[in-house]
């Protein structure tokens, strides 16, 4: 094909063509090489240090054990807590924007606000979270302060992805529902939301990815502690033997105590304490989580497109 287009070209144009083609392949190759190099280094240097003991214990200087279980629990708690709060908020906001809002000005204002929130660096979220939640409300460094900070940060992601998928719901569904005499809310609940579920799920996956990868917003809100808070069973006596009350007490304890996420632990181990091998082990775990999340998002996205 190149021969055909090359024929009869002046040497200058031929050179232009060749150079740019080389540059195009080069840039794409560089991008791939970067990724391959990054993933390679992390996995090769990190995976050998990932041990079962590390994943299932907390750090103990006495026993000479390094464990990241508290950080894993903190990360999971942050993800769960944030999604529980942000998901209803974000989905409802998106419903308002696509289904209810009549005033164009208002829609533009809200969309400008979500755009702005997306652009604000996470360190600023962390700072405001620290000032407001940990100091003004007196929550100290705790997972709930981290969760609330993340809620503000993640909201635009959920709103945007939900909005996109609501927009793909055919107008005829809405007309059919309304034509059958359903009210607006009934129409949203029975006709619009079920067809938009895939998009909402994609938004959730993206949000999980962002939360797991976040560090700057968490360092001064959720803190960097890595201590286990004990099991639900230990709280049974205090709860009078009622397992549900014990679970509630445990959750309360979990979210009012500070805890460093995996990313914060990575930072602490490799920067503040110079334990690079632990840093790499955590990096390898984070890398595997990222791979998994990307894979999930892709499968769900593909399913969405097929429909």
């Amino acid at each position: 094909m190149t021969e055909r287009t090359d024929r009869g070209l002046s040497p200058r144009r031929k050179l232009y063509d060749r150079t740019l083609r080389v540059l195009l392949w080069g840039a794409a190759g560089l991008t791939c090489a970067l990724l391959a190099g990054l993933v390679g280094v992390i996995l090769v240097r990190g995976l050998p240090h990932v041990t079962w003991e590390m994943l299932t214990s907390e750090e103990s200087v006495l026993k000479g054990v390094i464990g990241i279980l508290p950080n894993i629990i903190s990360t999971l708690a942050l993800v769960a807590g944030t999604l529980v709060i942000v998901l209803p908020l974000g989905v409802c906001a998106a419903i308002y924007l696509t289904e209810y809002a009549r005033n164009r000005r208002l829609v533009e204002l809200i969309e400008f606000a979500t755009e702005t929130l997306t652009g604000i660096p996470s360190i600023l979220f962390g700072l405001v979270g620290m000032l407001f939640f940990t100091q003004l409300l007196g929550w100290k460094s705790s997972l709930r302060a981290g969760v609330m900070t993340l809620v503000i940060m993640i909201l635009p992601t959920i709103v945007r992805t939900t909005q996109e998928s609501l927009k793909t719901v055919p107008q005829s569904y809405r007309e059919a529902a309304l034509g059958l005499g359903s009210g607006k809310w009934h129409m949203v609940r029975t006709a619009v939301l079920p067809s938009a579920v895939d998009g909402i799920v994609t938004g959730c996956i993206l949000a999980v990815g962002r939360i797991v990868g976040e560090s700057a917003a968490l360092l001064y809100t959720a803190g960097s502690a890595s201590v286990l808070i004990g099991s639900v069973g230990q709280l049974l006596p205090a709860a009078g033997g009622n397992p549900l009350v014990a679970l509630f007490l445990w959750l309360k304890k979990l979210y009012t105590t500070g805890g460093g996420s995996l990313t914060v632990a990575l930072y602490m181990y490799s920067m503040e304490r110079g334990k690079l091998e632990v840093g790499f082990a955590i990096a390898a775990i984070l890398m595997l989580i990222t791979l998994l999340i990307n894979l999930l998002a892709k499968t769900v996205g593909k399913k969405l497109r097929r429909e």
């Binding site: 794409a28 991008t31 990724l35 993933v39 914060v264 930072y267 984070l286 890398m287 791979l291 892709k298």
Partner: peptide
Amino acid sequence: LAPKGVAEVIRTAVDLLAGIPSVVYGLIGM
């Protein structure tokens, strides 16, 4: 320019690059 298959591979790579946590970039940089 990219053939379909190649483009798909690179797009996956780019998505992955976007998902890597910033502390991991920091660690590699360091």
